[in-house]
Design a protein around this nucleic acid. Structure first.
Length: 564
RNA sequence: UGGCCCGUAGUUCAACUGGCGGAACGCCUGGUUUUGGUCCAGGAGGUUGCAGGUUCAAGUCCUGCCGGGCCAGCCA
């Protein structure tokens, strides 16, 4: 695999082509500036990661600036807590602190208001006293033109008085709005006299009680871009039909062409077996399907962090998938392969037994402990090695023993010899079972001649098992995760909750770890050999979350047998 | 139903202004290996949505159709 492609070749996609064209034509005198504009009313997820990588990546490639701009135009749903968590997630993803302090659309409320007055004076905006319902029915449909509001022809003077009274708090919520005066029979519904300001008698987390009218997204966005000096305003496909509006406002306000940002849309990110809509994600949290926004099964950035996904792997993934206008759904396995690829290079190896089966070496000198050399990372010899205790009292993985093994099962079974990693060859001689016939202990002998992992007589074994020494081990637990939804495209079904995978979390409570896990930092990711990558929990002692498993040939063989 | 956007291996993307359709992930086979991991080599997988047209030559240009997405919040 070549995931860690350093990619010297310049990336090429339709957006970078546009930027190069603008550079060539000196459209913005060689400047490139972008922005990432989340609304502080929820948590960031993988879909946002694509946009963050694009916006911040593009700016840094072209030596420009990318602002984190909070689109805080709706006091009803937004909060400082969301803003703080968004900033934290972005800095984690980027791997460094924000080069610039975040900015807020609310910083521009004065300017936005002033511009709105100008539009009123120009006769291009009016105060409409109708209810939301009336305005909605008057908007018409895709095939029917809208009808003009009875208040559409108010004079600029009257509108200015009314608009100032709106601002002064003279009216109640919903009593009136400010609308742009464009055209009620436009093919594009967004151009049918859109609302610019609505009344909210609510405190805003940045501007407190300074305002009782708040700009809508359409009125705030393009002008905020212009104020900041954004050149390329990148957003997702669903804003395509808003672009004519974006341009219309800048045109009316006579923003000079070389200072006029323009909007370009790209396809948002989707994953198989995953939902990325704010509404559904919130529902998963509120209905306690998951344990919170940062549940490791959540596609939120905080969830991925808790699970141990390296941000560099998410960035490499975003680089790899590129930017296009085609609606697309990526296989979650692709992201996982980037996570493995990264972790394979960086994660230290340890040993843990997740589902222990006692194994006693009958010819081992009683009570003797030997310290075996174990390499920390075969991909990176500079990481050195450690000593792991070994004795005649061990645990191995339950799944590594079968009394009556099928073909192609290479692990331990009665009479068979296997290697214990960093240890010796052992042969299973006897199986001790409980009343139900389940194996509870294996009696084995070891060959002292195989200390180097090889037999002097050249005989081979077909498997190497991981193990943990019983008297020195650390006890704890581990959680493995599977996808939250069973179907590939859960969000297309009418009831996504019907599609939940009820086995998305499996907790193992009597895990045996080698002693060295006590030196691990919270949030550190290691590979437990043959089991996968695991991340140390930051709140509970000796708890590990499985970030992602290893590729598993044996599981594939079993799956094939199951389906045939 | 009107307007706009999009259709290239299973998936996601390449293929400079028309010039032999490639890669990654996934899958399969073999090699290496003290992780059934990693790594290496090879393989299968395509009527470029369909039908016409222009051209010596079309994934690329033109026309029509089909399929998918978005738009009728005082959300963003």
């Amino acid at each position: 695999m070549n995931n860690n492609d350093t990619g010297e070749t310049q990336k090429q996609d339709f957006i970078r082509t546009l930027v190069n064209d603008d550079l060539a034509s000196q459209r913005f005198s060689g400047k490139v500036q972008t922005r990432f504009p989340p609304e502080p009313n929820g948590h960031l997820h993988l879909g946002h990661a694509k946009s963050i990588c694009l916006n911040f990546g593009l700016a840094s490639e072209y030596g420009g600036v990318c602002n984190l701009r909070f689109d805080d135009t709706n006091p009803t749903t937004e909060s400082e807590e969301f803003a703080d968590s968004i900033r934290k997630d972005i800095e984690w993803l980027l791997g460094h602190e924000l080069p610039e302090e975040p900015v807020f659309a609310s910083n521009y409320f004065d300017q936005l208001y002033e511009w709105a007055e100008r539009l009123v004076e120009l006769g291009k905006a009016y105060v409409d006293d109708q209810t939301a319902e009336m305005i909605s029915t008057q908007r018409g449909s895709f095939t029917e033109p809208g009808v003009n509001s009875p208040f559409r022809e108010r004079s600029p003077e009257e509108n200015l008085v009314l608009f100032r009274e709106m601002r002064a708090g003279k009216f109640s919520e919903g009593q009136c709005v400010l609308r742009a005066k464009i055209s009620m029979d436009h093919d594009n519904m967004n151009m049918r006299d859109p609302v610019l300001y609505r009344i909210r008698h609510e405190s805003h987390f940045r501007t407190a009680n300074d305002w009782v009218i708040y700009p809508t997204y359409d009125w705030a966005h393009g002008q905020s871009d212009a104020i900041e000096g954004v050149t390329h305003s990148l957003c997702t496909l669903e804003f395509d039909s808003h672009r004519p509006l974006y341009d219309w406002f800048l045109e009316q306000l006579e923003i000079p062409h070389d200072k006029r940002p323009y909007q370009t849309e790209f396809a948002r990110l989707n994953f198989t077996h995953t939902v990325l809509s704010k509404r559904l994600l919130r529902q998963l949290v509120e209905e306690s399907v998951v344990q919170g926004w940062d549940d490791p099964r959540m596609p939120t950035l905080s969830g991925q962090r808790k699970r141990g996904y390296p941000p560099s792997a998410i960035r490499a993934f975003c680089d790899h998938i590129g930017i296009a206008k085609t609606n697309s759904t990526h296989e979650v396995e692709l992201l996982e392969s980037f996570v493995r690829s990264e972790l394979n290079q960086t994660a230290d190896r340890k040993m843990a037994v997740i589902n222990p089966l006692k194994l006693t070496i009958t010819n081992w000198p009683k009570g003797e402990i030997e310290y075996r050399d174990a390499i920390n990372n075969p991909e990176d010899p500079s990481q050195g090695s450690r000593k792991v205790p070994f004795s005649g009292d061990l645990y191995i993985e339950h799944e590594d023993f079968m009394e009556d093994p099928p073909k192609k099962f290479f692990r331990l079974s009665p009479g068979r010899e296997v290697r214990l990693r960093f240890g010796y060859f052992i042969t299973c001689n006897e199986v001790i079972k409980d009343d139900d016939g389940n194996p509870v202990e294996l009696l084995c002998t070891y060959d002292p001649e195989t200390s180097g992992g090889k037999a002097p007589d050249g005989r081979k074994v077909k498997a190497t098992l991981h193990w943990v020494e019983a008297s020195n081990c650390v006890e704890g637990s581990a959680i493995t995760y599977a996808r939250l939804f069973r179907s590939e495209h859960p969000d297309t079904s009418s009831d996504v909750f019907q599609d939940l995978n009820h086995a998305s979390l499996t907790k193992f409570s009597s895990v045996k770890f080698e002693p060295s896990i006590q030196d691990l930092l919270d949030g550190e990711v290691v590979q437990f050999e043959r089991l996968g990558y695991f991340c140390k929990d930051d709140t509970e002692a000796n708890l590990f979350h499985r970030t992602v498993g290893l590729r598993d040939e044996w599981a594939n063989i079993q799956k094939r047998k199951g389906t045939n």
